[in-house]
């Protein structure tokens, strides 16, 4: 189907991003291929250390899945910040990743966890890793004749914890700045690895390794990690926020997300 519509064909999943673009006449595709009847793609499952999300799984369905929440808590932490419940009833998680909005929470999750996207066309299937998937703002590595069928995200390790922190103008709005953080503990309660993904500060999700800034041992220096984050990001200004304010938020939210991830990791390894 997509092969026959050529470069002017567009997949319609939840429509929560595409239909606004159509209504505002920002996109005028010649053909729309509605995948909403492919109900066999409305699945979420966990197997072999991966959470697998099918193309027609709505945000609400993924968010409510207890098996997913236990396997990789970052997914639910992020989805709670994606829009409002009514938008989440229709919007698909795979669609939000393909849409590649630099303010989309799930793009940061894919990047931070190093997930993969499965793409299918009449020519066959290919799998693209997170680092190659995002090409620019609203641009991902999906060819016009391809359908993204599934996103896979690794489950959270035993001594690891994660947290999402963001600031938006109103509850449910796109983030002015957001940080997803993950820490791994060594045997003695110190941090062996700390990484964070940033949204709304660059055209594609930005990843920072904060392990060294946090320092080894039990007394982690989260403030230093926040300062490193402020130095690493170079956000832009727009009608929602100035670049300086976004940079400030990147620092504050880094500390907040790392503290949350650290507490989460400690709780999980004690429990």
């Amino acid at each position: 189907m997509l092969a026959s519509t050529g470069p002017d064909g567009k997949v319609l999943a939840g429509g929560q991003s595409l239909v606004p673009l159509l209504n505002m006449r920002l996109a005028t595709p010649e053909h729309i291929v509605d995948i909403n009847r492919l109900t066999e793609l409305a699945y979420v499952s966990v197997a072999d250390g991966q959470v697998m999300i099918g193309a027609l799984a709505r945000h609400a369905q993924v968010l409510a899945d207890p098996v997913v929440a236990a396997a990789q808590p970052l997914i639910a932490q992020a989805l709670r910040l994606v829009a409002h419940p009514v938008i989440r009833n229709r919007g698909t998680t795979v669609g939000s990743i393909v849409h590649a909005d630099p303010s989309g929470e799930m793009t940061a999750v894919l990047a931070l966890l190093g997930g993969t996207v499965l793409l299918a066309s009449t020519g066959g299937e290919r799998s693209v890793s997170a680092e190659d998937f995002f090409l620019g703002p609203l641009e991902s590595d999906v060819r016009p004749d391809e359908l993204a069928t599934q996103v896979s995200l690794p489950v959270l390790g035993a001594r690891a914890g994660c947290a999402f922190a963001e600031v938006s103008r109103r509850n449910g709005d796109y983030a002015v700045c957001g940080v997803a953080a993950m820490v791994e503990l060594d045997g003695g309660g110190g941090i062996s690895r700390a990484r964070a993904a940033y949204l709304s500060v660059a055209g594609t999700p930005l990843i920072a390794d904060l392990t060294e800034a946090c320092g080894a041992g039990a007394g982690a220096d989260l403030a230093a990690a926040g300062r490193l984050a402020m130095a690493r990001v170079s956000p832009g200004s727009d009608i929602h926020a100035t670049a300086a304010y976004r940079r400030h938020l990147a620092g504050v939210l880094t500390e907040r997300a790392l503290a949350g991830a650290l507490a989460h990791a400690k709780g999980r390894s004690d429990g």
């Binding site: 429509g15 929560q16 239909v19 606004p20 209504n23 909403n36 009833n89």
Partner: peptide, 13 residues
């Protein structure tokens, strides 16, 4: 039974 935005859904869907 599920709440949705009717302005973001095509009638054919």
């Amino acid at each position: 039974g599920v709440s949705v935005r009717s302005c973001l859904m095509l009638a054919v869907t």
